[in-house]
Amino acid sequence: MESQHDIFLVTRDLDVGYRNGRRVTTLLSGINVDVRRGQMTALLGRNGAGKSTLLRALTCFTRPLKGRVELAGSGVALHDMTYAERSRFVGLVTTERMLAGALTVQEMVEMGRQPYTGVLGRLGRHDHEVVDEALEQVGIAHKRHEMLAGLSDGERQKVMIAKALAQRTPLIVLDEPTAFLDVESRMEVMKLLHKLAHDEGKAIILSTHDIAQALMLADTLWVITRDNTLIAGPTEDLVTNGTMNSVFNDDNLSFNAAIGDYEARVETSRTVTLDCPDDTLRYAATALLLRHGIAVNAQATGHTGIVVHTPADLVALRATLTQERQ
């Protein structure tokens, strides 16, 4: 039996960007990464860094400027396949607007079977089974007869994921699947994708701006840095080696490894030490102090010590700070 962590896809000296007439704009060059089954990869980077462009090249919607995307093992380039052949290897989920509101959930998921049906698109018994299973997997089976137009954004996104599942491809590529979603749906979608990678052995690549979620659930990160290089590696490694701090240009933005997200660097006028036993209170007190231009440093000695042991202390601290400001 093949291992769950088999390499499925590799890129070889891939350059991506776009052609506008004769002008060629290269966004990322010399990309050599591999995509493994059973792993979720999160692609992070600022807007315009080339996340979408890279995913378009990986799914062969556009030709890469240079280099190849090939199936590991056989070495066949995705670009040399026909559309029909490729549709059995890579599934796609985007957030593009479409005129498909008058299709039912089930009809949309059935689209995922198109690579396997004949010219008239008739579904066989196996196709129906696969569709049912996909509907169950994303938890939308109870709405199978509802129109897409009546669904929430989160539900629609689940339907599109079910469509990709019905396509039975080893790799699913998702271009910002959590954009436009509220926190609850975002979590649900990310957890679902993580589960699909770990339990179903799918290779999942998704681009996202939701850093905290990505760091929590992605096995691998592809980070596009401010100088347009793609750094790939296990999530823990990139978090600890400072890669995350090389994403944005703005010096006022710093990556806080403790909370797994970026925070604004605020100018502070003085530093204090904070005596606080509880994580929640500590977080709230630190933010409160920072808003008032006071940095907290645990190791520093010789600074004013602030004690917050109860929520009431926090209220008192806020009152003091407000008074000071006036």
């Binding site: 378009r56 799914t59 919607f61 490729r86 059995r88 005129l99 008239l120």
Partner: peptide
């Protein structure tokens, strides 16, 4: 035109999805 029903349905999802479903 009857034979175009299947790709027509795929085209409802837009070009990118349609190509991903195997439609040239």
């Amino acid at each position: 035109a009857v034979f175009m029903i299947k790709p027509l349905n795929a085209l409802l999802l837009g070009q990118r999805y349609a190509e991903n479903l195997g439609v040239n």
